[in-house]
């Protein structure tokens, strides 16, 4: 029996463990209702579960208005220091100088990674419009979280090329490409590229895929994320806590890997 499974079965917060949510958001979302979407609401749910910290990219920033969204995250970082960290989110659909300046502004203000969402911004991840973002992250040696899939604008296989081109960027494959097939693509990418990591959140937790990724890609390359408040955080906690892996592997996935990659104490 797992310590994590015991605690989650009883609804006990995991505050004595290190849980860092490497993939979360904030705010409203256009096409559906999120009843509890503020930074305060997120921290309340994190407290209930025992998530020590999260790294947030605002819904407005991954869609319509990068500056509005980034400002909301900067405010949340001030309101909840040590609990909410920020991804500087970049839209490729504005002039390169503006994109770079926005990233510089956010990182200078304390954000610790870069987030891109090629699907929502309607631009292929290897399109030249994303070059300023990749160059910025590479120059600063920042972690970069991207939405991914097995096809479309952000297929996992494309990140293998980008990882080689921008070796200083620690690339987090958001959602690990989704599902069982996405997990297979992600495992290959992680094995091929030392600077690629698997981030696991997804609304459908296909049975046994987390165990497959830990077994084949390595527990030191798989990161816990929840998508909060785009999704409820609790299912992803249950997914890791009940997984058929060791407690030491769960500790790596839940927080030790993120602490190392993002340099969070």
């Amino acid at each position: 029996m797992s310590t994590f499974q015991d605690k989650v079965s009883e609804g006990r917060p995991l505050m004595d463990e290190l849980l860092i949510d490497a993939h979360c958001h904030m705010g409203f979302y256009g096409c559906f209702n999120i009843p509890n979407n503020t930074a305060a609401g997120m921290v309340a749910q994190m407290d209930r579960i025992g998530i020590r910290a999260c790294i947030s990219a605002h819904h407005a920033a991954i869609s319509s208005d990068q500056r509005y969204g980034n400002d909301e995250v900067l405010q949340a970082m001030t309101d909840f220091p040590g609990r909410i960290y920020g991804y500087a989110t970049a839209s490729p659909n504005y002039p390169a100088a503006e994109v770079t300046a926005e990233l510089e502004r956010c990182i200078s203000a304390g954000m610790i990674g870069v987030k891109i969402h090629p699907d929502l911004h309607g631009t292929n991840v290897d399109d030249d419009k994303y070059r300023p973002v990749w160059e910025f992250a590479n120059e600063k040696a920042l972690p970069l979280l991207s939405h991914t899939g097995v096809a479309g604008r952000n297929p996992v296989r494309t990140f293998e090329t980008l990882a080689e081109k921008y070796p200083n960027v620690k690339i987090l494959l958001g959602h690990s490409g989704f599902g069982s097939e996405g997990a297979n693509h992600t495992i290959r990418a992680v094995k091929n590229c030392p600077n690629i990591y698997a981030e696991i959140t997804g609304s459908i937790c296909v049975y046994g895929t987390l165990e497959r990724m830990v077994r084949e890609a390595g527990a030191d390359r798989v990161l816990f994320g929840t998508d909060l408040p785009f999704l409820d955080a609790r299912p992803q906690v249950g997914r890791v806590a009940f997984a058929n892996i060791t407690d030491d592997e769960k500790r790596q996935v839940f927080g030790l890997n993120a602490a190392r990659i993002f340099k969070i104490q």
Partner: peptide, 8 residues
């Protein structure tokens, strides 16, 4: 799908 998410 995994059962853990439903329980948590």
């Amino acid at each position: 799908t995994d059962a853990g998410p439903a329980i948590a």
